[in-house]
Design a protein around this nucleic acid. Structure first.
Lengths: 210, 210
DNA sequence: GTATTTCTGTACCACTGAGTACAATATAGC
DNA sequence: GCTATATTGTACTCAGTGGTACAGAAATAC
């Protein structure tokens, strides 16, 4: 699926070829944005991490805003795997548990703390306003997936008949984002796992047992 | 307790008197930092909101960092009232419920969305790094108060004997911060109240009933 | 080979950021 | 009145920001 820029799929490959791997550069950009936020990540920091100079960045990715969007795409692509895996659990409760615990575990083995969708642009100046809304939409999209998963669970009898899927999704989103803030502040794995244990008590057990 | 700068308590009051109210100016600065974050709030924006010019700002508050610290103090002072009121509830559970619902209510009647302690500097460039840690400490301080409240509740038999006060405090902090992210994203009052209702299910009922 | 196309590197632009020098102004003390 | 002290407004410094012009370099097309 992956291919270098020089391969057959492009119409041809004329001119001087790129001296860097676009995917790898984007990965590095993502890490910088993740760590410093949209406005906090400066062009020098980005180009340094990406190993390219400014004009190459602009030629390949547009401008800073466009690069950030692509970086967010990449982030969602990477973390989405774990998310989908969690959602695929047999029960809604299992899905949530896997999701929250998975977040804690992956965060504590990650060099960059916090969730990119939360911390990249929560409060920012005018220049970051569009990105702030963009990220809010992204978070809402995640919440929608949760809600649909829970709606399905209600229909399947996996959650109690009267369960409010939207409220449960909102709740799980809240815990996710709260965890993200904790990550950013450097909280310890064990205390977060204990808190997740508490959080799970709010989530309905299997519909059969209720 | 409050006093104008010209009153007797100061040694004397020589020189040209201040043409603005320091308290009011600080309030305005707080609002700007609250809305735009530490790095996102620019000096022109601050001075405009405060109704003073730059040298007056520097003379009265030091530099931007110092002003921000004072603004955070002010923020804590203001919101702390509601927090203390919540903590003063008879039961730990009542305290948490009052706290979370109070946050939702006050947020939805506030012009500025989100919690200053969360969103002012979650991810930022180098210049905001010190403030980022400062805010993490502030959040930890709130969590400590929660923990102590819960420890007391355990001793009083208000919470079950085996209850893990630290985990409960971490949990409530997580919900608080998650709510803050929702506020920032513009979530609706009703859906948040519904989610808080869910969140409360994780919190142990009175020790007598368990 | 030469022409064409594309990428790279240097150097720059306009703008905004935080912070400050300094003269003008307004008070208190005498 | 005059002097000393402190605040104000204008105008500035200087570093850093996102973004780009342009010449040189590396590839293909012919």
């Amino acid at each position: 699926m992956k291919k270098k820029a020089e391969t057959v799929s492009s119409p041809v490959a004329r001119g001087r070829p790129r001296g860097f791997d676009v995917e790898k550069a984007l990965d590095q950009a993502m890490r910088v944005f993740w760590k410093y936020g949209y406005e906090g990540a400066s062009l020098p920091e980005l180009t340094k991490a990406m190993g390219i100079n400014r004009p190459s960045l602009y030629a390949a990715f547009g401008n800073k805003e466009s690069l950030f969007r692509k970086a967010v795409d990449r982030y969602v692509e990477i973390t989405g795997g774990m998310f989908q895996e969690a959602m695929a659990q047999q029960t809604a409760r299992g899905a949530v548990e896997k999701l929250l615990k998975g977040m804690v575990e992956s965060q504590c083995s990650s060099k960059i703390r916090g969730c990119m969708l939360v911390q990249s642009a929560l409060a920012c100046g005018e220049s970051g306003d569009a990105m702030k809304h963009e990220l809010a939409m992204r978070r809402a999209a995640v919440e929608s997936v949760l809600r649909e998963r829970f709606e399905r669970a209600v229909m399947e009898g996996d959650l109690p008949r009267g369960a409010d899927a939207a409220a449960l999704a909102k709740y799980v989103a809240i815990v996710q984002h709260g965890l993200a803030v904790q990550f950013s502040g450097g909280a310890k794995r064990e205390e977060l796992l204990a808190a997740v244990e508490v959080a799970m008590r709010a989530f309905p057990a299997n519909g059969n047992s209720e």
